[in-house]
Design a protein around this nucleic acid. Sequence first.
DNA 1: CAGTATCCTATTAGATACTG
DNA 2: CAGTATCTAATAGGATACTG
Lengths: 127, 127
Amino acid sequence: MARHKTYDCSSGCPVSATLDVIGGKWKGLILHHLLEGTLRFGELRKRIPDVTQRMLTQHLRELEESGLVHRQVYAEVPPRVEYSLTPQGQTLRGVIAALKSWGETYLGRKTPEPAAPKRRLAVASGR
Amino acid sequence: MARHKTYDCSSGCPVSATLDVIGGKWKGLILHHLLEGTLRFGELRKRIPDVTQRMLTQHLRELEESGLVHRQVYAEVPPRVEYSLTPQGQTLRGVIAALKSWGETYLGRKTPEPAAPKRRLAVASGR
DNA sequence: CAGTATCCTATTAGATACTG
DNA sequence: CAGTATCTAATAGGATACTG
């Protein structure tokens, strides 16, 4: 999501810092797939059908700048570019796993659209 | 971030689902503070100085709609509203902890602005 | 194949003022 | 105190066309 700038809760928001890095619309997915191995640009596209070329490129660049993804360009023709996780990127495995596991439970417990119970009503007599 | 809509990788992106729910600019922080106990609106503001009133309200509403936060309104004057995590919200504890822990290491390993090594250079002779 | 370049829309967030 | 209402600015994201 490239919120890498303004971040003044100086050295106090590791939670936000992590979300800044992995919180783009497709970054979770990209990381998830790269955790299973090196992939070429086109292979990533196939695994994430709804991402546009532009967004995939952009997010990969951001992940690269964050030091999580390595971009290996082979000087061939046709060109070949392989993406893989850096050692630091690999350390995200546990985090992604936690997100995935929680999400599975959350999606399981929740019907797609609960259509809000009634909105704004939860009053108690003051004590 | 309220990307709760378009989400067609039907039942396949629990990672994204989780990020949709906790990925707002301030949601991680809000959740983090509420994990330590019930807080009033104003108390949350003090703990997250840079959030605007509007954003805090909005994110709290979204978290409430996601079923993670409970909003308790006391019919007093001056008004008092307390926010706490629902049981489902509590289940996020491990996730937030993982984000926090990873973020601490990440921030520790990374100087604020590495000023990019040289940009776009990582070629290898094709094999 | 693996991108860039443009253009454009939608979503998010911030500032400021007002209120039950 | 705990919000709403407006208005505006900044970003993120998408569509499409073109290229080394």
